[in-house]
Nucleic acid binder design. Structure first.
Lengths: 151, 151
DNA sequence: CAATATTTGAGATCTAATCTCAAATATATA
DNA sequence: TATATATTTGAGATTAGATCTCAAATATTG
């Protein structure tokens, strides 16, 4: 039962904006719809380049600002796949998952593991921290890359 | 049974350097000893500032280069505590652990949870990835910060 | 419709990280 | 030991991502 429908995502976004006294401007619409349709993982510069390619004119500053709002609103999640760039993923229409990253080819495998999630909850509870988000990254070499090295 | 002794750490570092055909220069020594003695978590700019304060003269470029070697050698581990800076921790003398970060006060709680580690191994195995490193970050609000807000 | 508040965009600024290349050091070789 | 060779360093330039500034444009409110 996952919300994939664009219209209902837009409604959720508009509600969020309204609650904050913000308006649903054309720029915010462009960015939001683009992300809903096209993207799962991305970093901001990639996104800016893609928008530019499609002649969707939104300034760099507005993109950064809008991503901040989308993160606050819970549509985006920062994932720590790489250390010198903010990397996001759109989460409103996918189920929660973590990442395995191949350090050789950069490919990303998504996984979800309920037992792992349980442990994370347990750890947070044990330290009396009310959890807002979490991240798990596993880095390694994927099978394909291991096989290529052998050759 | 943890190696805390500076001398044996230095020996390990020198062995690593030797194997790679690199030399144990005064600059590398300064950085390494400083990290062994003073630091657990740090980012590179902080480290550069600290060295400068202590009048330990090593250029920025050399610090960045040396940290790269130390990471390769397994003395440092990148931890994803913050998205726009590389954050390291010195791991040669501590046991493996993960982090809970308070988003309000920035305090860091270290924890280790064998069951969680087990799940990570299991996931990597399932996807046939030979694991090189992993990271778990839990973000939230610590008890102290929650209590302060109430007031 | 006027007054007020919000948002945008262009470009400046900041910061982290990397690169460049000549000078300094270190190492190997004769 | 002298010479040749390779490595390392440091100062500063460069790059890249992110943020800031502020006037102009747009939206909202009374």
């Amino acid at each position: 039962m996952v919300t994939l429908d664009l219209q209902s995502l837009i409604i959720r976004f508009r509600e969020y904006l309204q609650n904050k006294g913000l308006s649903y401007t054309p720029q915010r619409r462009v960015i939001f719809e683009y992300l809903c349709k096209e993207r799962s993982h991305f970093n901001t510069e990639e996104l800016i380049a893609s928008l530019r390619e499609k002649r969707l004119k939104v300034s760099r500053a507005t993109v950064y600002r809008t991503l901040g709002h989308l993160e606050d609103a819970g549509f985006l999640r920062q994932v720590a796949l790489n250390s010198t760039q903010i990397h996001y993923e759109f989460i409103a229409n996918t189920k929660h998952h973590e990442h395995v990253v191949c350090e050789s080819c950069g490919s990303i495998i998504e996984f979800s593991d309920p037992q792992l999630e349980e442990r994370i909850e347990a750890v947070a509870a044990k330290h009396n921290v009310s959890i807002t988000r979490h991240n798990v990254q596993i880095f390694g070499i994927c099978r394909r890359c291991r096989e290529q090295v052998k050759t």
